[in-house]
Amino acid sequence: MSLTTAARVRPEGQEHFSISEVVSFTGLSAHTLRWYERIGLLNDVHRSHTGQRLYTNDDLDWLDFVRKLRLTGMPVADMVRYAELVRAGDQTMTERTQLFREHREVVKQQIADLQTTLAVLDFKIEFYEGVASGCTP
C-alpha cells in the first residue's frame, strides 16, 4: 500500500492493536513495522503473553509522524537518529531542532521544485486546451 493511501480510522477507547490492525490503520506493511522495530525507529513494542506484538495509541501516533517524515523524503538514518534523540531525553532538544531545521530546508527546496514543475504542467494544459479548442498559440 502506498504512503498516500487513506488509512482506516482507529477505534476510540481501544488501547492495544495487533500488527494486522496497525497495517490497516497506517497502510504500512507488517514487514515494514517489524523492520522499523528492528532498526530502532519504533521502540519497545509491547508483547502479549504469547509473544504477539501489541501496539499502543502512542505507537500509532509515532508511526503517523514517521509517515509524514517519509513523505518529505527524510532519510531513514535521520529518522532513526531522531528516535534515538527522543529516547535520550530533553537534553537533546537542541540537536532535534537542528535536525529538523536542516531537513526543513530540503523540504522547502522540494516545494519550490514542485511549484516549478506545476507551472510547467499548467502551461502544457493551457497550451493543449487551446489547441483543442482551435486557438493557436
Rank of each mutant, 00 (worst) to 15 (best):
L3K: 04
L3W: 13
T4P: 06
A7G: 15
R8H: 12
R10D: 00
R10S: 03
E12C: 07
G13S: 03
Q14Y: 01
E15K: 12
H16A: 05
S18P: 06
S18W: 02
I19H: 03
I19R: 00
E21P: 02
E21W: 02
F25L: 12
G27P: 12
L28N: 09
H31C: 07
R34E: 11
W35M: 13
R38I: 09
G40T: 14
L41H: 13
L42I: 11
L42Y: 00
V45T: 03
H46G: 14
H46M: 04
S48A: 13
T50A: 15
T50N: 15
T50P: 05
T50F: 09
G51T: 11
Q52G: 06
L54P: 04
Y55M: 04
Y55N: 06
N57A: 09
D58H: 04
D59Y: 06
L60N: 01
L60S: 01
W62V: 04
L63Y: 12
L63K: 02
R67P: 04
R70E: 12
R70C: 05
L71S: 15
M74I: 09
P75A: 11
P75I: 13
A77Y: 02
D78W: 09
V80F: 10
V80K: 11
V80H: 05
Y82T: 02
L85A: 02
D90T: 10
E95N: 06
E95R: 07
R96P: 01
R96N: 01
T97K: 12
Q98A: 14
Q98C: 01
Q98Y: 08
F100G: 00
F100N: 02
E102W: 02
E102L: 03
R104T: 09
V106M: 00
V107K: 12
V107C: 04
V107R: 09
K108R: 15
I111W: 01
A112V: 06
A112P: 04
Q115I: 00
L118P: 00
V120P: 00
V120G: 02
L121S: 04
K124A: 06
I125W: 02
E126I: 02
G130W: 09
G130K: 11
G134P: 06
P137V: 14
